[in-house]
Simulated scan of single mutants.
Amino acid sequence: MQFGRFRIGLRTMKTAMAVMLIIIIFYFFKRPPFVAALASVFALRESWDKTLSFAKIRLMSNLVGGILALIYFLVHAYTHNATWVSMFFLPFLVIIAIVFLDGFNFNSGVIGALAALLMISLSIPAGATVLYVIDRIIDTFIGVIMAIAVNRFASPDPQN
């Protein structure tokens, strides 16, 4: 659909569909949909092939960001929520994520890894347990899987 210089394309509709499905599913499971919805937006690409190809990078970046968020949580809890952990240790973990992904030539996954790391780390509620962090890591994978599924089944041609 075209409205002057603005258009609503298939990728826009598929992105909205992935977000909608995540919100609906997470509503019934009483889980916060934020992390999964954002992960699906990051992962969905203009074609099935590009989404599938990018999904491998996105899954690796989610894993890196999630593991570093778990390390952040453990250090933060161990230091009794010391402020310096957020101010200095978390930026150090950002460096670790960038260097690691760059070293393995996953440069296109850096933003996704940092998004996962920061979304999880900076939204941990007081009194949360390790299970909270693990749930958010799982949410990032659910978001990527949803993007893959929507892009596969909502395309008029499997190659698109």
Rank of each mutant, 00 (worst) to 15 (best):
A149R: 14
G109F: 05
G103I: 01
I124F: 06
R152S: 15
N107A: 00
V94Y: 03
A128I: 13
A126K: 13
A147Q: 11
I134Q: 08
S121P: 05
G112N: 11
N151L: 14
I124R: 10
L122P: 04
D102P: 00
G143C: 13
A126E: 12
N105R: 14
G127V: 02
V144P: 05
I95E: 00
G143K: 09
D102G: 15
I137T: 06
I111E: 01
A126C: 00
I137K: 06
G143R: 13
G103N: 01
I142T: 12
I145R: 08
F106E: 10
S108V: 05
S123A: 13
I120Y: 10
I138V: 15
V150M: 08
F89E: 02
F100H: 02
I138Y: 11
V144K: 07
V130N: 00
I145C: 11
A115P: 01
A147P: 01
D102S: 10
N105D: 14
F92T: 12
V99F: 09
A115D: 08
I134P: 03
L118T: 08
I96H: 06
I111H: 01
M146P: 14
V133P: 00
V99E: 06
A116D: 04
F100R: 03
I145V: 15
I137D: 08
A149L: 15
G103F: 04
F100Q: 03
I148M: 15
G112C: 00
L114E: 04
M119A: 12
I111S: 05
V99S: 02
L114A: 04
I98H: 02
S108K: 03
I134W: 09
V99T: 11
L131M: 03
I134M: 14
I96C: 10
A128K: 07
F141S: 10
D102K: 06
G103C: 01
V94T: 12
S108T: 06
F92L: 15
N105H: 14
L122D: 00
F89C: 11
N105G: 00
M146G: 10
I134K: 03
I96K: 03
V144M: 05
V110P: 01
A126L: 05
V130P: 01
I134G: 09
D135S: 11
V99K: 11
I148E: 13
I124W: 04
P91H: 13
I137R: 05
N107I: 04
F89G: 09
I142P: 07
V94N: 10
F92D: 04
R136Y: 09
V110Q: 08
I96W: 05
G109V: 00
I138G: 02
V130F: 15
V110N: 02
L101N: 08
S108Q: 06
G143E: 12
L131Y: 12
L131K: 13
L122H: 09
R136F: 14
I96P: 05
D135T: 08
A116Y: 00
I134F: 15
L117I: 03
A116P: 00
S108P: 03
V150W: 08
L90F: 13
I96T: 07
V144F: 01
I138A: 11
